[in-house]
Structure formats: structure tokens, C-alpha cells
């Protein structure tokens, strides 16, 4: 077996050693160009396989934010603009600008999540001799949207003076799919937030479906942002909301229209209580400082950027505050990326 030629060659490679270096004995039998094999060893192939699998998984997990947009949805966003319609006053450029910002914000959100976007212009209409009633049209528009989208289940009313700060949250993930965990049914319990001091009444069945989702602010129900489910319960609510006997007695006492009407009926109607669910106000209806005057820094009501509140509702900004300045402020906040999102611009 001994080959004098091979020995000479080996010795030529290791000039300073009189014998082969330990661990290199295979060199005696190697051939030209053998170094390429090390890239296709079992270890390397195994590592490559694992790497590919992990990459495929990462692609799968990233798909939602990267590319996927749902084609259909059972959520309708109801958005009302052109409030007042310039009937009593000429609309100012600032009002148009406010509408433009808000409309664009909502439209982008609807497109991103595939929601239907139902826009209504609410010019003032006279129905009673002594008042204009554009604010009462919420029930009409909800019923109109229910007719237009017969397959949709959820209808989200969102006021003009709101801004969606975290558009990556879908309503399904934020509210609808975890309703059982976040909704409060019985606010008369002493541990629950109950600013109107509602008392318990008989015949309420809290096991019935939730058909109406809303938050409460320092004054009671807050209807700047709420969700309604299509159901017979909802048809009944929209039906009796304007009962002429009740409205005739109360309309001068109700500055907040539907909000006060629903609060009033909530007082005495067991069936109404059975269908309502309350969520924390900041879940989809945060307030800016200035709304709920006197509440200071109450974390129950006010927008918290660090916690990434979904939507800010500039409630009451038409009375003594400047809506356009506020919405521009929050628009600026929304456009400023936070944390690790600075590094990944498309998320």
C-alpha cells in the first residue's frame, strides 16, 4: 500500500514536519478540487432546510400586514359629513378642511379592512316648526344602511369630529371577536362605571345577544362612536326612539338628542337593557383634554398615545374649542411613528 510518490507530495506540503500532521491523513487520498464538497455536507443541508422553513413561516405571519386585504366584510362604517349643509351659515374653509381630513382618514381605514363605507350628507331639514333636527337622523341613516347592505351584520357609526389613530386595528379584533370579554352588561352593579346612577329593574335578561355597543363618558352614554348589530331588537329601537308622546314631552329637555333618548328609555325598559353592552370609552372613543371638563387626567376618558388608543373623538370641540386645530394635532401625532414601527415603515 505504501506509495512513495504520495509521500513525497505530502512531505512537500508540510516542509517543516518530518511526518504527516494529525487529522490530515485523508489528504493522502484526496483529489484535485475536493474543497467544493464541504458546502454540501449533511450539516449544511440541514441548516438550509430549517432556514427555509423558518422563512416560509415568517412569510405566512407577515402576510396580513404585507399584502392581504379582505375583499368582503360584514361591517359597514356609517359616516356623516356636510353637517348643517350651509343652510344657516356659509361653510367656512376651515369646516371644509376638517371634513376633508376626517373623510380621508375614515376612507383609508375602510379600504384597508374592506369595510363598506356609507357616507351621508346631512343638510338641515325642517320637520317641526320650532326646530331643525339633523342630529336625529342617526336612526334613519342606520336603517338606510341596513337596507343598502342586507348582508352586513355590524354597523359602526362614527362622528365627523373623530380621527382614527391606529388604523391597523380592525373592529373584529378590537371589539367584535372579544365581545364576551370586554363588554359590561349590567352597569347597575356597584363595581361598574355608572355615571347616570341607573337602578336595577326587573325582567332584564343579560344572556341575550349584545346588539348595541357603546361607551360611557362623564355625562352618560357617548354616541360619537358606537356599534349596532342588525337584529329585530335594533329595528324596535329605531322604531320607538321617536315616540311622539315621549318626544313631545322631552325634546326641550334633551340637548343631546338620541343620546338622551336612549338614556331615558334605558331607565325603564328591560328589553332595551337586555340588548346593550358597554365597553371602556377609550376602546374606540377616546376623548381629548377639553372634553369632560373637570375630569383632569382621568385615564378612563382621555386619549393615551403610549397605549395606542384606537380612535380619538373631539367631543364638544364646536363649543369653545377649535376642531380643525385639534384634528390637525392628532393627525400629526398619528403620522409620527412610534417605537419599532419607525424601522419598518410599511407596518
Amino acid at each position: 500500500m505504501w506509495n512513495p510518490k504520495k509521500k513525497s507530495e505530502a512531505l512537500a506540503k508540510f516542509k517543516s514536519f518530518p511526518y504527516p500532521k494529525p487529522g490530515t491523513s485523508n489528504v493522502l487520498d484526496s483529489k484535485e478540487g475536493d474543497t467544493r464538497r464541504k458546502y454540501f455536507t449533511k450539516t449544511h443541508l440541514h441548516r438550509l432546510f430549517v432556514f427555509v422553513v423558518l422563512l416560509l413561516c415568517s412569510g405566512y405571519f407577515l402576510k396580513h400586514t404585507l399584502l392581504t386585504r379582505p375583499k368582503e366584510s360584514n361591517v359597514v362604517m356609517i359616516f356623516v359629513n356636510n353637517i348643517g349643509g350651509g343652510v344657516l351659515d356659509v361653510k367656512s374653509p376651515r369646516q371644509w378642511e376638517l371634513e376633508k381630513i376626517s373623510t380621508e382618514n375614515k376612507k383609508k381605514y375602510a379600504e384597508r379592512h374592506g369595510y363598506h363605507f356609507f357616507v351621508k350628507s346631512t343638510g338641515l331639514k325642517r320637520r317641526y316648526a320650532h326646530e331643525w333636527r339633523e342630529s336625529w337622523e342617526k336612526a334613519d341613516y342606520i336603517m338606510e344602511a341596513m337596507k343598502k347592505y342586507p348582508h352586513a351584520e355590524w354597523f359602526w357609526w362614527v362622528d365627523l369630529t373623530t380621527f382614527i389613530m391606529e388604523p391597523q386595528y380592525s373592529l373584529e379584533k378590537l371589539i367584535i371577536n372579544r365581545l364576551d370579554h370586554i363588554a359590561t352588561r349590567n352597569i347597575t352593579d356597584s363595581m361598574e362605571f355608572n355615571p347616570k346612577n341607573f337602578h336595577e329593574i326587573p325582567f332584564v335578561d343579560y344572556s341575550e345577544d349584545i346588539n348595541f355597543i357603546l361607551g360611557q363618558d362623564c355625562n352618560g352614554f357617548s354616541l360619537g362612536s358606537f356599534l349596532v348589530r342588525r337584529s329585530d331588537w335594533t329595528s324596535r329601537l329605531m322604531d320607538f326612539l321617536w315616540d311622539p308622546v315621549v318626544y313631545g314631552q322631552k325634546h326641550m329637555d334633551w340637548p343631546h338628542d338620541e343620546q338622551n333618548a336612549i338614556e331615558y328609555f334605558y331607565e325603564n325598559n328591560a328589553w332595551l337593557r337586555s340588548g346593550m353592552g358597554f365597553v371602556p370609552l377609550r376602546l374606540f372613543n377616546s376623548y381629548p383634554p377639553g372634553a369632560c371638563a373637570g375630569e383632569g387626567e382621568n385615564p378612563r376618558f382621555f386619549y393615551n398615545q403610549k397605549e395606542g388608543d384606537f380612535l380619538v373623538n373631539l367631543a364638544g370641540c364646536n363649543y369653545g374649542r377649535d376642531c380643525l386645530d385639534e384634528i390637525n394635532h392628532y393627525k400629526g401625532l398619528a403620522q409620527r411613528k412610534r417605537g419599532w414601527r419607525k424601522l419598518v415603515p410599511f407596518l
Binding site: 422563512l55 416560509l56 415568517s58 412569510g59 404585507l66 399584502l67 375583499k71
Partner: peptide, 25 residues
């Protein structure tokens, strides 16, 4: 290779997901 696999994986999963959603719809 890595970049291609990442993008291809993302496209592949989203395309299949969309197709399946369409069928289910």
C-alpha cells in the same frame, strides 16, 4: 436567495389565502 424566499413565501401564502377566502365566500 434569502430575499427571494422571503418575498416568495409572503406572496405565496397571501395568494393562497386570498384564493381560499374567495372560494369560501
Amino acid at each position: 436567495v434569502i430575499t427571494t424566499i422571503i418575498l416568495g413565501g409572503a406572496w405565496w401564502t397571501s395568494a393562497m389565502d386570498t384564493k381560499l377566502q374567495t372560494k369560501m365566500k
